[in-house]
Amino acid sequence: MSVDTTPSAAEDSPAGPGAPAGADTDGVVAMFRRVLETEDVAADSDFFLLGGDSLVATRVLSAIARSYGVELTFEDFVGAPTPERLAEKIADAR
């Protein structure tokens, strides 16, 4: 079994040089951490269980639009409230 040691897109900053074409889970985790003002966010953390609400969710949606050029709806966010699932939605929309 071989192990891939090449850098992944998840190591890139969502808005920085070399930003990935699609979303990476780590980039969405960083967005959650920034808007929720907590480091206690993992790939499978539920935004709403972490204390997020609809107003704060709009900040995440705006950051996604700026960083990835994808406009997700609030309904998309509610249906995929974790960084992992939002990254999938972003990738699907691209």
Rank of each mutant, 00 (worst) to 15 (best):
S2T: 13
S2Q: 12
V3K: 13
D4Q: 10
T5M: 06
T5C: 02
S8F: 07
A9I: 07
A9M: 05
D12L: 12
D12H: 04
S13Q: 09
P17D: 14
P17V: 13
P17K: 14
G18I: 08
G18Y: 03
P20Q: 11
P20M: 02
A21G: 13
G22Q: 09
G22S: 06
A23I: 05
A23R: 03
D24W: 01
T25M: 05
D26G: 14
D26Q: 15
G27L: 07
A30Y: 04
M31I: 12
F32V: 11
R33E: 12
R34Y: 08
R34K: 14
V35T: 13
T38R: 14
D40Y: 05
D40F: 02
V41N: 04
V41D: 06
V41Y: 00
A42V: 10
D44R: 11
S45M: 01
D46Q: 01
F48Y: 12
L49N: 13
L49M: 04
L50C: 03
G51S: 05
G52V: 08
S54V: 12
L55T: 06
V56C: 08
V56Q: 14
A57G: 11
A57T: 07
T58Y: 06
R59V: 03
R59I: 00
V60T: 02
A63H: 02
I64C: 02
I64M: 08
A65D: 12
G69I: 01
G69P: 05
V70T: 05
E71L: 05
E71N: 12
E71T: 15
L72A: 08
L72G: 02
T73Q: 05
F74T: 15
E75D: 14
D76H: 11
F77R: 10
F77N: 10
V78A: 14
T82M: 09
P83C: 09
E84Q: 15
E84D: 15
L86M: 15
L86P: 08
A87C: 08
E88N: 04
E88D: 14
E88M: 04
K89A: 15
K89M: 15
K89C: 10
I90F: 09
I90N: 10
I90V: 15
A91F: 00
A91W: 00
D92K: 12
R94V: 06
R94P: 01
